[in-house]
Structures are given as structure tokens and as C-alpha cells.
Design a protein around this nucleic acid. Structure first.
Lengths: 194, 194
DNA sequence: AAATGATATTAAACTAGATTAACATCATCG
DNA sequence: CGATGATGTTAATCTAGTTTAATATCATTT
């Protein structure tokens, strides 16, 4: 089992001993998903926090009218799950679905407490990861407030050029909170402008 | 110094020994602010994470056009700061201003590392606090996507009845991301409906 | 190469919410 | 008391983005 990318990611925040690494390896596992498969389904309890080794997922929400709203994409070296469901073990609000064949490192809710007890440094690691996620989420709220759809699209394109290339445009529209038709209009406007 | 409300809040997640409580008390301090005073100013580095003992703050952002957008309100037993600025000690994106005379427990960036080292349980406490904040932030993004302005207002009123009473309507409009005129229209519609 | 399904574009009609501006109410304070 | 500033309302006009629907492109499979 090769969890090296996760270990590298952890080592940016805390340094684990060989023994701790061994313990961590013994408690997590890798799971392969095919394109289209669900990691989490709305309504189920989310049992895992997942680190993306390869591939790509979308986290989305289906509203009462049946409309799909994409909350985030996760690619290599990102985390994915429904944290609300995971931390309180209640039914998930979100779906997580693979957009490509993907390999995820799965941390089960059954073992997180063991992990935190045996490797207190992981508590620090995850605190910092979540702090960053929270800050990013707040910044997104600010963007929703103060940018036009065009500005938000330009921001997305600049920040996540790698993601834009891997994902169909109608999903980017959903992520930006606009219709695919309007994103198409924005893109043709941008072409005329330059 | 009476930090009892903070200790009660901590005790919901982890239990501290008397010695740990003493250490915590020695590292934090209480500061009083008058209505209108700023706890954090956009552009400054945010030095403190603040627990609200009494009073009320708004966290807001002034965009390029000079428009104010309220990100959150904090009342008793909530935390406030610009976390992005605090964790990376870079200039703050947000302002935090007191809407009432307020008393805050201040945790300086200079002491957080000491606190985490001496009281590892605090690392767990803050991890859980931030996890919840992140989940709440994500849910707000969902609401922005899938609810109309009226629905968002009704949700706010239901979730934060205490806050609504303490805060002028135009600030609630700003928090909801709509104009004060439109909120006024929504309210008169609601009166007609019932 | 034809067929199928998924993705993208275009354009017309429509609407939620913004903007502007005038006016109303309320609180506080000299 | 009247005046001042802050807060809230109403209504007309405007616009960013939606809806609907038709068409186009592209990829995959047979």
C-alpha cells in the first residue's frame, strides 16, 4: 500500500515518527472507484474522510426541485467527504461522485479517535487542514456576494486551471451557481473582448 | 477574571484539569469594547481569536466599490476573528466591529502555540469548533445557491431569532446578500401573506 | 459511416432582485 | 421642544441572470 502522497502532505504540517507512520498505515486503506461511482450518497451516513490519491470527485447537492448544485471538486492531494455528516454521523446532505476513475485513501469514522489518541500530531494536522478549508469557504461566500458571474468565472479559471480542463463546462456553471447557458454566453463575450 | 462561559463551552468537548484551567487563564485576557469599536481592521494582521462573553460583533468586508458585505454576526458564546489572517499572519480581508458594548476573551497568536503544547486537549476543542464552522459555512453556500431571498430571510429568522432582534434590518439585508430595499419588500409581502 | 448520448451554443422572452430617489419614522440630544 | 442622524418604506425603472427551446458539436459504440 502506497500512501506516500498523504504522508508528504502531512509532513508539511507535522513530522511523524516511523512508528506513527506504521500505525497510520495500519488504520487506513485505499479504495478504487470507477468513473460515476458514488463515495457518499445524500441521505446515507458518511463513514469516511477521503484523501484523493488520483482521479477527481465532485461534491454536490440535489435541491427540492431536483436541481444539482456542485459545492466543490476534489483532485489529487485534496480531501473529500461530507464533513457535517462525518462529524455527527447523521445523514449526509451531499453526494460525492467520481468524475474519473479514482483512488482514495479512506479514513473510517471507526478509527479516527484511535488515530487522534495514538498520534496526537494528527489532531494538529487536521485542525490546520480544516482551518484552511473554512477560510476558503468564507472567501467563496465573499466572492458570491461581490463578484459578477463573469468575474467569478475568471477567478475560477485563474485559480483552478487544472480543474477547468478536466471537467465539463456545465459542471463548472453549476459550481459557479449559474446556468450552463449563461456560462456559455460569458465565454463567447470573453472571446469577443480580447 | 471570569472566563467561566468559555470554560463551560470547552467542557462540552474536552475536560480540562484545574491546572490546565489555571494555565489557560494565565494566557488569555478579557478586553472591553464600546459599541462601534473595531476588533479587527481590514488590512491589519489579526492578532487574536476572540470568544464573545457579552455583546455582539459583525464581521464584514468592504469591496472595491466601497460596498459593505456582512459575513457573520457573533453573539455570546461565539468566536470571532479573521481566521485567514490569524492563521497565516497576513493582512485581514475582514473587519470585526462591535455592534454593542462587548466583552471578549482574547487569545493572542503569540500564545496559541504555547496553549496547544501545554494543553493538547485544546487542539481537539478547536479542531471541533472549526469543523462546525466549516460545515456551517458550506451550508450557507448551499442556501445561497438554492434558496430565493425570501426563503433565506425566513431561514435566518428561524435560525437566529435572537440575533434578528438585536440588529438593524439593513445589516440583516447585507448578511443575506440583498439590498435593504428588497428586504423591506420581502417583509411587507410576508405581512400581506399571513 | 451511422447512430446514440452527452455536451455546448444561440436567441427570445421572462423574472428576481438592484438602483434610484423621494419620503416616513424613530431615537437621541442640546 | 425642534433638529439631526440613523433606520425603514414605497414605487418606478432597470439589468444580470434564468428559462425555454431549438440547434450544433463531439465522442463512443456498433
Amino acid at each position: 500500500m502506497n500512501i506516500t502522497p498523504l504522508l508528504n502532505s502531512i509532513s508539511k504540517y507535522v513530522s511523524l515518527t516511523d512508528k506513527e507512520i506504521e500505525y497510520l498505515e495500519s488504520k487506513v486503506f485505499i479504495r478504487k472507484y470507477l468513473k460515476g461511482q458514488y463515495v457518499v450518497q445524500q441521505g446515507d451516513v458518511c463513514k469516511y474522510e477521503c484523501y484523493v490519491l488520483s482521479g477527481c470527485t465532485k461534491t454536490f447537492y440535489v435541491d427540492q426541485e431536483g436541481q444539482e448544485h456542485i459545492i466543490m471538486f476534489s483532485i489529487e492531494d485534496w480531501w473529500t467527504s461530507d464533513m457535517g455528516s462525518f462529524i455527527s454521523q447523521t445523514p449526509a446532505d451531499f453526494n460525492v461522485q467520481c468524475l474519473e476513475n479514482s483512488e482514495l485513501i479512506m479514513i473510517s469514522h471507526d478509527v479516527v479517535d484511535d488515530l487522534y489518541r495514538e498520534i496526537p500530531k494528527l489532531e494538529r494536522f487536521f485542525r490546520k487542514i480544516v482551518e484552511r478549508a473554512f477560510v476558503a469557504s468564507q472567501k467563496r461566500i465573499v466572492r458570491n456576494f461581490s463578484l459578477t458571474a463573469k468575474e467569478q468565472y475568471l477567478y475560477f479559471r485563474e485559480q483552478y486551471p487544472l480543474i477547468e480542463q478536466r471537467i465539463p463546462q456545465y459542471m463548472i456553471a453549476s459550481y459557479l451557481g449559474i446556468t450552463k447557458e449563461f456560462l456559455s454566453k460569458i465565454k463567447s463575450q470573453l472571446i469577443l473582448e480580447q
